[in-house]
Amino acid sequence: MNNSTNSDAQREVGNSLWRDAFLRMRKNRLALVSFWLVVLMLAFCFVVAWFCPNPDKIDLDNKFSGPSASHLLGTDQLGRDIFSRTLFGGQISLLVGFVATTVAIGIGIVVGAASGYAGGRTDAIIMRSVDTLFAIPFLVVVIVLQVVIAEWTKNASGWIVENWDWDKKLTSRIANIIPLFIALGLFGWLTLARIVRAQVLSLKEQEFVEAAKALGYTRMRILFRHIIPNTLGPTVVYATLTVPGFIMYEATLSYLGLGVEAPNSSWGILIRDGANFLETEPQLLIIPGLFFSLTLLALNFLGDGLRDALDPKASKD
């Protein structure tokens, strides 16, 4: 396998891992549709949303109105635009999913690679700790951790507003979602650490690593430039499958009133609020629920497709 990180060099080789994967992926229609659905969802939530009516504008004369030119999908119990609320809620949900996954991936790669590359006693200690953390009830600890960090960021945001003169509303909005990034990311890296470690264990015995050693490269350089880039395949697959999981956790926490708080909103909050009017105004739950479930479906199918494309051996089942 080509161990260069330079994309031009990879293109010359012609049949790199990524090109192979791309060719296989193109045949998987479900994964392709899912990919474009995810892109579309991101475009809607992060671009189209800014051209929609203000999601927080209350209009009590116009509540529960049906779809119209000014409100594409109608309005909610306070006369707020449902479409724009769903898109802005999606911003937070997707942001939490992607950022928390990035945090988890970062920790997982570093711990897994260090453990696998160091080997010996370091490896044994790290992997025992990972085993132990694995058996701990994830959601329970995340909830307690989230409450603790939320309190810290609340204090920190107050300090920032006072001393640095930041916008109070914006700061508290940001301070409200940061704990979710940290709490989910801090516990979500365990599986990835195991995957990366297993990869590193087999990679470090291969010839190209020996060649790099013979060239006199430092251990750090070999690890970061030659070994870690080769673990990216499984990492990308795992990341794609983690994002929907984290979006679900965020919705669960927010549903319980322990995650995102007003004025922020997320799909979890919209679904919770919508459930109160389900009997008479079902669209309040169904619209955000549909966006939420479609995104999760697309991400899961995309992850499955990527796994099949990157690891043809596993694609038989």
Binding site: M248, T252, Y255, I271, G289, S293, L296, N300
Partner: peptide, 10 residues
């Protein structure tokens, strides 16, 4: 897959 993606609160 739908069972995994549709949350209990829906």
């Amino acid at each position: 897959m739908i069972g995994i993606c549709v949350p209990a609160f829906t």
